[in-house]
Simulated assay, not measured.
Amino acid sequence: MVQSKRQTDILRLLESEGAIGIAELAARLGVSLETVRRDLKPLAGLGAVIKTHGEVGLPSSMGEAPFEKRMRENSAAKKTIAAHVAATIRDGDSIMLDTGTTTSFLARALIGHRRLTVVTNSSDIARTLATVNGNRVYMAGGELRSDNGAAFGSTAIDFVSRFSVTHAIVSAGGIDKDGVMDFDLDEADFARMALSRGQRRLVVCDHTKFGRQGLVRVCGFSGVTELATDYAPPYEISAALEASGAALTVAHK
Rank of each mutant, 00 (worst) to 15 (best):
S196T: 00
R217Q: 00
V85F: 07
S104T: 14
D39N: 05
L29Q: 03
H207G: 02
R200S: 09
K78Y: 08
R200G: 02
K79C: 09
N135H: 15
P66D: 11
H53D: 13
D189I: 08
P234F: 08
G57C: 08
M71P: 10
H207V: 00
C205F: 04
G112T: 11
F221S: 05
E68L: 14
L227C: 15
R212F: 06
G211S: 03
L33W: 11
G21V: 03
G223W: 04
G174R: 00
P42A: 07
A19D: 07
N74T: 06
N148Y: 13
E187I: 10
A228S: 14
V56K: 05
A150G: 15
N74C: 06
I50F: 12
Q199M: 09
S32M: 02
K79A: 11
G134L: 09
R212V: 09
G47R: 01
A44H: 04
C205H: 03
L195F: 03
S16G: 14
D230E: 13
K177C: 08
R90M: 07
F163W: 15
E17C: 12
A156W: 09
D147L: 09
Q7I: 04
K51V: 15
G223L: 08
I22T: 10
G142C: 05
A48T: 07
D176F: 00
A240V: 13
I22W: 07
G47S: 00
G57I: 07
